[in-house]
Simulated assay, not measured.
Amino acid sequence: MNIIVPATSANLGPGFDVLGLSLKLYNKVEITRQKITSISIKGEGCNNIYLKKNNTFVKIFNEIYLELTGKTDNFKFNFLNNIPLSRGLGSSSSVIIGAIASAYEMAGFKVKKETILNKALTYENHPDNIAPAVFGGFTVSIIDDFKVYTQKAQLSDKIQAIVVIPNKPMSTNKSRAKLPKHYTAKDSVLNVAYSSFLTSCFIKQDYDNLKITAKDKFHEDIRMKNLPELFDVKKLAYENGSLMSTLSGSGSSFLNIAYKEDSINLQEKLRSKFKDFRVEIIDFDNIGFKILTKS
């Protein structure tokens, strides 16, 4: 069998741990049964020995497969990784969702995507990345009584992501540790207002008003201080047609959204100014993970 899982961008400014969207940048895994377990990695992380010796995907896959079948069979895992590691584009969520969905498939179980999402809570307790990896599109998620509830909106093909990918990673755990333990009532109300209006803009596809809502009082500026160039990325993006510019997840990547007719110009402007960073135009994904074939 083959599975593809999309990259994701989470938080989206004020939607801390709640909002996310899905990108047409995929990790692909081919899994076949064989006598001895083996792992092959191409693309991102291909030279990382740790990823072969202590592969998180394989670990989660084996746990779920054993739980479902009571067996410990051997498989060949061929990874083609296109999602950058530790850049705020959901590489970890891609691993978690891909491993769980693959284990169900290889064990012969047909389940709803909601089952995969809720199983993922065992490994990731923030749904902002795992929900769009499962469903695609723009997602709003909450956890209530240990269950994820998600609403999804389709993303228009009139817009694209222009993603700035710095040459430095950011650790989610380290950056989260720097965040305040408490927030003022004023900042909390502002974030609720911004995230609520931002959600309505995505649902109605009112992209012209995204800019006034993509403001955050909880985490973004604190995390961006780890890579101050991102403040300049944001400024330049808004000066050149960006509808929305926010830190992607915990960083270090930066998500810009623009209409298709403005994407190439924005990409060229950003590439010219930030020569050490990758700047990629990526379409939005509205499907989420997909099982492609069986073998």
Rank of each mutant, 00 (worst) to 15 (best):
N82P: 02
I116P: 00
G70F: 03
G241D: 09
L121S: 10
S252M: 04
C46P: 01
D283C: 02
T150A: 10
E114M: 06
I3P: 15
K112F: 05
I97A: 12
K273I: 02
S91I: 15
G45W: 08
S93C: 05
N11P: 03
S92W: 09
L12F: 05
A107S: 07
N81T: 03
L230Q: 06
Y123T: 03
G241S: 08
K53I: 07
S156W: 06
K52Y: 12
T246R: 11
K215D: 08
K110T: 07
L85F: 02
S91N: 04
V189E: 08
G43D: 11
T139R: 10
N286F: 04
N82K: 08
Y65C: 12
I143P: 00
S141M: 05
L190M: 07
S22D: 08
P84L: 00
I165C: 14
N240A: 08
T32C: 04
N191Y: 10
I31M: 03
M1V: 01
V134K: 08
V192R: 12
T139D: 10
H219D: 01
N173D: 15
G288V: 00
N54C: 04
E67Q: 12
D157R: 02
F57C: 00
H182D: 12
N256E: 06
M1Q: 03
V233S: 13
G251S: 13
E280Q: 08
L117C: 10
G288A: 09
A10M: 05
A237S: 14
S263F: 02
K215W: 03
T32K: 15
F197N: 13
I31R: 00
Y183C: 09
I39T: 11
K174S: 14
A7D: 10
K174H: 14
L21K: 14
G98Q: 02
F57R: 04
R176H: 14
A193I: 08
Q160C: 14
K168V: 01
Y194V: 01
D157S: 03
N62F: 05
K52M: 14
F202Y: 15
K290A: 06
K234G: 10
G251C: 10
D17R: 01
